[in-house]
Design a protein around this nucleic acid. Structure first.
Length: 774
DNA sequence: CCGGTGCATGTTCAG
DNA sequence: TGAACATGCACCGGT
């Protein structure tokens, strides 16, 4: 049940360097794949890769919080230092099962590994028996009142640890709870699952950073940790703030150690941005480049086994558990975290990720990042968009290999660093965006580019290899990248200096330009309930959305620094607009895209949208867009979305946004015109039907009278009339459709304020033109 | 028939 | 060589 093994390994602490005999325990009820060893000489923590095979707790077991390592916040010793972990949703610990006090608090209040020494001494077992924290306290699944814990403290040789100044609890607490701690300081801690030993890890990093020989050690993962100067430098002021540095696990190549490609590669700036956006302290855990399968519709994201076992809650059942993960915008998602048996092993997946992936507009090749919020332990999911291949291929530093980097996570995209670094013709300013290890001019690193993060490029990009790349290009999702001519039309703008010559052809006015058109930036126009319109554009550097005047016309390449309309947001460092507004814009962007795709696939092939559909689109669009806080679904029917033409969704809106009956806006006039035409058509049809019926009756009467003609028993005069009427209708319809007549049913005045995406006004018009009558 | 689910299999790569 | 992972595919249930 409980095993203790001893072994020998090199202490990672460069200042120690001893080949210590360490002791580790197999079978922590915490995480598989991550155990802590302690160097006998210096006390540095090891991370070993033993898999928890001895026993495996299910989620009903007793343990400490896997996320935040918190326990005993209530200070209730009688609770055996155990709390019941009730919520796997990323929330963290629940309440002490003994005193029922909430088990939430700040790290500083949390008795950490060594800060519990006074308490541990209560459990000290003999001269050398020492409680080293988790290893002792949670080596067994205990139930309340279980005192067997004392039997599982067979540690020997730890006495000197207690005496070590390094392991002073107060010092640890201070270092691990310092509020001003820069985010990067946490990164290496993240490599320690459960932040096992905050103090020693921090100390080790500091020691390593201060000792040149440690940095030179190619085998040490400390190589990739941020330098001391970086740690102490406010984000954004250091060139390293832009450095995308992989933060590796603490040590070694054990079986369950994270491969370098999963090391979180946040720049400090990104981390700061995320932390700022969420106002939280973010601890990067790992990241994964999306495969075609991950980004596909199947909605399953394959998790690296080691990462899943190291950072996600342990699961014993294949069905897994629901896992709550928050995205960088603060939206919470619940995924099913589960596994499949696979070759005597496990394959971990997150199920139900499609909506999240789509909301982030991710594709195969993009990267999702997983972080943890400390304190609290909430899981955060971010992302980084892959850059265009063309931006990288042929550029010197990356040697033509496909680099997954990067414009980054959601609201905090910073593509410039790697983009810039990829191009040989850089000025010194641009070089500031280089990761330190890529830029030999800074920091004196002599690493070759192919050895970035201690791993060859091909390894980093393995998951987007030739096969994946092919899939990437031809996957259905990626087809959206292929911009259509119709879409291109929207981006084309007359040359700014050009004045059009108006030519009238068959009573239609055309603008002629002699200069070739220029491409503009795609933007989104929204409307407030008041009717005021706003234009939104995404910065090409940081991808933040900026609110602009509706009359603003942007060049193809536009960044925050070009934002002459809003001085407070003319820099990429400026925060984005409110979340609500952004959600609205992003939703519209998505819907816009969807609508465009849908339109190109349906309307283009056949004018299937009826006048009612077009009307419903207009109504639903207006309804949705007119109300800023409305979700993507219509308020009428949660399952229906913009454009839905069902009877529910086309109901006239009520309350806010309703147009006055005298309104003469485009939509209202269209509705009125349709209504008028419809009434005329109905009247006409009725007349025709009456005429046909009368004719049929007369004909039958004649036949009966003459008794010479045969009666067609299969003929239904009414139906025949109906068919003929439909025929007439269709004929008439096509004619009117070509003439641009818009018909439909709706009550005039029932249309809400309509907000147009750029070009949508024409789009609706086009739909109407091609629409059939009802 | 279609989409979801669970598992199997082929490929890649680290040890 | 075996573990990890990407993806194919059979099965099953719902429509």
């Amino acid at each position: 049940m409980f095993q203790v093994k001893t072994g020998s390994k090199m202490c990672m602490n460069a200042s120690c360097g001893s080949t210590s005999t360490v002791e580790w325990k197999k079978g922590w009820p915490l995480r598989s794949g991550a155990l802590a060893d302690l160097c006998f000489r210096c006390g540095s923590a090891y991370e070993t890769s033993l898999f928890c095979e001895t026993f495996h707790l299910d989620q009903s077991g007793w343990r400490e919080c896997y996320l935040c390592n918190k326990r005993l916040h209530c200070g209730c010793i009688a609770s055996k230092l155990v709390v019941e972990f009730m919520d796997y949703g990323g929330v963290g610990c629940s309440t002490c099962t003994n005193c029922h006090q909430p088990n939430l608090g700040k790290i500083g209040e949390n008795p950490g590994l060594f800060s519990r020494l006074p308490m541990n001494r209560q459990h000290t077992n003999g001269e050398n028996g020492m409680n080293v924290g988790k290893a002792d306290l949670f080596s067994q699944p205990l139930v309340q009142g279980d005192d067997k814990r004392e039997e599982f403290m067979p540690h020997r040789g730890f006495s000197n640890l207690i005496k070590t100044d390094r392991l002073d609890g107060g010092e640890i607490l201070e270092s691990s709870s310092t509020p001003s701690q820069p985010p990067s300081l946490n990164m290496p801690l993240a490599a320690l699952p459960y932040s096992l030993n905050f103090a020693t890890a921090t100390k080790k990093l500091m020691d390593a950073a201060s000792q040149p020989h440690a940095v030179q050690s190619s085998s040490s993962s400390i190589l990739q940790t941020p330098s001391k100067s970086v740690l102490g430098t406010p984000p954004g002021t250091s060139k390293s703030a832009q450095a995308r540095i992989g933060r590796p696990p603490n040590e070694g190549r054990g079986r369950s150690h994270l491969l370098p490609r999963y090391w979180p590669k946040y720049t400090d700036k990104e981390l700061q941005q995320i932390s700022g956006n969420l106002n939280l302290n973010i601890v990067p855990l790992f990241e994964k480049t999306l495969s075609a399968s991950d980004a596909g519709r199947i909605g399953r994201l394959v998790l690296p086994k080691a990462c899943a076992e190291a950072y996600f809650p342990p699961i014993s059942q294949s069905e897994g558990i629901p896992l709550k993960i928050q995205d960088v915008r603060g939206k919470e998602w619940i995924f099913q975290f589960r596994f499949w048996p696979n070759n005597n092993s496990r394959m971990y997946v997150l199920e139900g990720v499609t909506p999240c992936i789509q909301s982030m507009m991710l594709q195969a090749g993009d990267t999702v990042t997983f972080s943890r919020v400390d304190p609290g332990g909430k899981l955060i999911m971010g992302f980084r968009k892959a850059t265009h291949t063309k931006d990288i291929q042929g550029c010197g530093l990356t040697n033509g290999t496909l680099n997954e980097d990067t414009s980054s996570s959601g609201v905090t995209e910073t593509p410039t660093s790697i983009n810039a670094s990829s191009c040989p013709s850089q000025n010194p300013e641009e070089l500031k965006g280089l990761p330190e290890h890529l830029n030999s001019n800074h920091g004196g690193s002599s690493l070759k580019k192919s050895e970035v993060n201690g791993v060859k490029d091909k390894k980093r990009t393995r998951t987007v290899g030739a096969k994946s790349r092919r899939l990437l290009l031809h996957s259905e999702e990626s087809m959206e990248v292929r911009i259509t001519w119709e879409e291109t039309q929207e981006l084309i703008r007359p040359s700014p200096s050009e004045k059009p010559t108006v030519v009238v052809i068959e009573e239609h006015e055309f603008e002629e330009f002699y200069e070739p058109p220029v491409f503009g930036k795609r933007t989104i126009i929204t409307s407030k309930p008041s009717g005021e319109q706003e234009r939104w554009a995404s910065c090409d550097d940081c991808s933040k959305w900026r609110k602009l005047p509706v009359e603003a016309l942007l060049p193809a390449k536009w960044t925050c620094s070009d934002n002459v309309w809003d001085e407070s947001r003319c820099s990429c460092s400026a925060p984005e607009e409110s979340l609500k507004e952004l959600e609205n814009v992003l939703r519209m962007s998505k819907e816009y895209k969807k609508r465009r795709t849908g339109v190109s696939q349906t309307v283009r092939t056949e004018e299937e949208l009826t006048g009612l559909d077009a009307l419903a689109s207009a109504a639903a669009l207006g309804d949705t867009l007119g109300e800023e806080e409305e979700p993507a679904t219509t308020t009428r029917h949660p399952r229906h979305r913009v454009g839905c033409s069902c009877i529910v969704c086309i109901q006239p809106p009520s309350g806010k946004g309703r147009h006055n009956s005298s309104c003469l806006c485009t939509v209202c006039s269209t509705v009125k015109r349709r209504f008028k035409t419809l009434m005329m058509r109905r009247k006409k049809k009725q007349l025709e039907r009456e005429e046909i019926e009368a004719a049929a009756a007369a004909d039958q009467e004649n036949k009966e009278d003459g008794k010479t003609g045969r009666i067609d028993l299969n003929s239904d005069p009414c139906n025949r009339g109906e068919v003929e009427a439909v025929g007439v209708e269709e004929k008439e319809e096509s004619g009117k459709g070509e003439a641009g007549e818009c018909l439909g049913v709706a009550q005039a005045g029932d249309v809400v304020g309509v907000t147009e995406l750029e070009g949508e006004g024409e789009k609706i018009g086009e739909e109407s033109k091609g629409s059939k009558l009802i």
